Simulated scan of single mutants.
Amino acid sequence: MNNFWQEFNTPVFSLAPMEDVTDTVFREIVMGMAAPQKLHIVFTEFTSVEGMNHPVGRKRVAERLIVNTSEQELLKKLGVKLVAQIWGSDPEIYHNIAKYITKNYNFDGIDINMGCPVKKVFKIGACSALIGDPERAKEIVLATKEATHLPVSVKTRTGIKEHITENWIANLLEVDPAAIILHGRTQRMQSEGDACWDEIAKAVKLKNSLKPHIPVHGNGDVFSYQQGIDRVKQTGVNGVMIGRGIFQNPWFFNPEKTEITKDERIEKLLQHTRLFEHTWGGIKNFNILKRFYKIYLNSFPGAAKLRADLMEVKDYPEVYKYFNS
């Protein structure tokens, strides 16, 4: 197995998997704005193994794994790794879908979602619920690893109702995942409160004593590149994953670019819209784009009015007409 997670010589920065956010379009946009060697890994949206295993439902679920040719070219040019993130609760189905993905796609790795805190997902025993079922969690990792030559990482949290970081991470280390990405919150915390980087530091200390070759990356409340570097120094993590920080600044991975003009923001919004239309026109709901408009249109006079106006548009032509009028 070629474990790219162990090949980096500098602190690793990644863009977190996010539903209805990190599709092929947004990944390409973010990579296009990144400075060289500031973004190392990107992830797909969450992909259900049960959905992929269903002969009827597979086509729709597989939309999460689409990679545009233009994104493929950019990944190669920049040397960024692309990881498919999968979720579910059945080890056998994980095995089947890991084998299917390996055969039919060209990803650099597979990541198992053991962190999503959403209640309806938790109730069916998937994602963060697996923290409470460590034996099944280990079965899932082993079953996935058996099905692929790709490195299999795990993204998870520090506990369910309370932090059980050391016990939980010790369980995961037993099955040698390629890497562990740890969000410094419990399932119950959802996205509330402060991410607990002291807990992430505990995980680093534990893996250093038990399995020092396994990288641990931290996730939670990192809103600038420098803050990420500081977290690396403070905790000893091998890398930092960025989630909501990208919404505050889509240029997150270009830390030298501190001044972004109104024209640059509008240009990026229009580029995103055209690429989204080209990729998803007639497939995905146009209104998904509006969450992105909010992140481009800020920090300049009149931004609030532009945001408000664009929340009222109904289709692609209206967006293009608005900025050409």
Rank of each mutant, 00 (worst) to 15 (best):
N104P: 02
N219S: 15
N113E: 05
E7M: 09
K262G: 04
N287L: 12
T258K: 15
P11M: 12
L275E: 13
M241Y: 02
N219D: 14
S48Q: 11
N113C: 04
L15P: 03
N106P: 01
I29F: 08
N324E: 13
R274W: 06
L306E: 09
I97F: 03
I260T: 04
V49H: 04
V25F: 05
V313N: 02
N106A: 13
K262L: 11
L15I: 12
T261R: 11
A203S: 06
D263M: 11
T273M: 13
V204M: 05
E199N: 11
G115R: 00
T156G: 07
D315A: 10
I229G: 02
G57S: 13
L206S: 03
L150P: 00
T24P: 01
Q85D: 09
H183D: 08
F292A: 02
M18H: 09
H54E: 11
I180F: 02
N324V: 01
Y316M: 12
T10V: 14
M33V: 09
S14M: 11
D133G: 02
A62H: 12
Q226E: 14
F247M: 14
D23P: 01
L65V: 11
V319Y: 00
H95V: 03
D108M: 05
R136E: 04
F292V: 04
T273V: 15
L306V: 15
K257F: 06
N285W: 08
V80A: 01
S209D: 10
K268Y: 09
K145W: 10
A98V: 03
F107E: 03
S153P: 06
N104C: 06
F26P: 00
E135V: 13
K268M: 15
I140N: 06
T148V: 10
D108T: 07
G159T: 07
L269Y: 05
I169D: 01
V154K: 00
I288F: 13
E19W: 10
Q271L: 15
K314S: 11
A201F: 02
K207V: 03
R291V: 11
N249F: 07
M189T: 00
G236P: 07
H40Y: 11
Q226H: 13
H40P: 06
F122V: 08
